[in-house]
Nucleic acid binder design. Structure first.
Lengths: 219, 219
DNA sequence: TCGATTGTGTGACCATGTCACTGACAAACT
DNA sequence: AGTTTGTCAGTGACATGGTCACACAATCGA
């Protein structure tokens, strides 16, 4: 068990919080979770409002054939709207949240959450914005899924996920999930990219050899 | 200009509103709009919170090829989350809202909206629930788009949109938009349904001849 | 070292979206 | 009535993408 962390101070998401609300939250400890831990599955009971302090969570939807789509990632300072939906009494649906790195999270128990919503303007604003921007991002995902070609989505995700040296530490399957496609499709398209000299393929990762070439594919 | 309507009384969405908040809203008049009116387009300024009192609004997203998807419909007592996003300062994206029938709407000006959010628990709850259930429905749409076959989506929309006698007063294009597909695809699939004896095709509408047959396709 | 697991490559096939048409029908106009 | 115009539906050809069924190579544990 870690020492009580100063998550409230570190979390700039709640920086604007009033002193009174701050006091109420001060007692909560951040919980540490290992990478790979499943935060919730379809049908789970929701016990509180989840705030990610450090690390990254992926929220996935799985189809009947086993194909998966990454709905969104939760980064530090963000919350899991899925659980918020549950707290507000909306039935949930089939999505799964997985810790993609080691995590520190804070769980605000439902009664405290409800109380803060009523009493803290800053907290309310925070929750509203979280909702709004998540809705926004889901709509963008929908738009990409419905209207954008694989080639473009793939190029975009490669550029998004590469490090400074241009290396993308993802398997083809990871990339396929991220863009809502199938592994085989990604493999084939990557091979094409390879033949065009845009990338070099290795087992488990990809080297981008022409960033500008990929960027041209996005427009 | 219609007489001041009693929209607040008629709208059971805000039935639980406190007396004080009710007073603030009492001065607002419902606005009547004709069918076909475009409520907003991408890039429009948002002046207030929109509540539909009667009629139905369709919110569509259009792709570069001209293909359209119905994101959701707004029915009486519901709000347009798109405008709410705007009010909360989230940039909006390319969606369009069209009156599908004649409408009565109420627009709560931004300052009053903000004030109600701060002072009325019931109003806040209403807005939160609106957000939550819209997010929910958008996710379901995403799920259908990503994982469900045309046949199933088409059968579902036919059953959803038929009247008591089994007639669906929609063109193939309407149905295609509703399920996020293309007109030609819907035409072909409908012809197949016809050959199987599930529907009879006419110009401008469709007669369902075997409800149970369509239901079997959904599962 | 020997499986077992994981990541990738491939071919075949089906479902769907797109393009480019055609014709059928209905409302409006002369 | 005939003509025009616009909407709606049917169709063939083709490209893209998802699914299935494999093969094979790299990696990792026991």
């Amino acid at each position: 068990m870690p020492a009580v962390t100063d998550w409230l101070t570190r979390s700039n998401a709640l920086a604007a919080l009033e002193a009174r609300a701050r006091e109420r939250l001060a007692g909560l400890k951040a919980i540490e979770l290992p990478a790979g831990k499943v935060l919730f599955r379809p049908g789970d009971e929701v016990s509180g409002f989840v705030l990610v302090v450090s690390g990254r969570v992926g929220v996935y939807m799985t189809g009947p054939t086993g194909r998966e789509i990454l709905l969104y990632s939760i980064t530090p300072g963000e919350t899991c709207v899925q659980t918020t939906l549950g707290l507000l009494g909306v039935e949930d649906y089939s999505a799964e949240a997985v810790a993609e790195t080691a995590l520190e999270i804070v769980v605000i128990p439902k009664p405290l959450f409800m109380d803060l919503l009523d009493t803290s303007t800053a907290f309310r604003t925070f929750v509203f914005h979280a909702f709004a921007s998540r809705l926004q991002s889901i709509m963008q995902l929908l738009e990409r899924l419905a209207f954008t070609k694989i080639e473009e989505r793939l190029a975009a995700i490669l550029l998004e996920r590469c490090d400074e040296t241009g290396r993308v530490r993802n398997t083809h399957q990871d990339l396929a999930t991220a863009i809502g496609s199938a592994r085989e499709v990604v493999s084939r398209r990557l091979e094409l990219f390879g033949r065009k000299g845009l990338v070099a393929l290795e087992r488990g990762h990809i080297e981008i050899t022409s960033k500008s070439g990929l960027m041209r594919l996005i427009g």
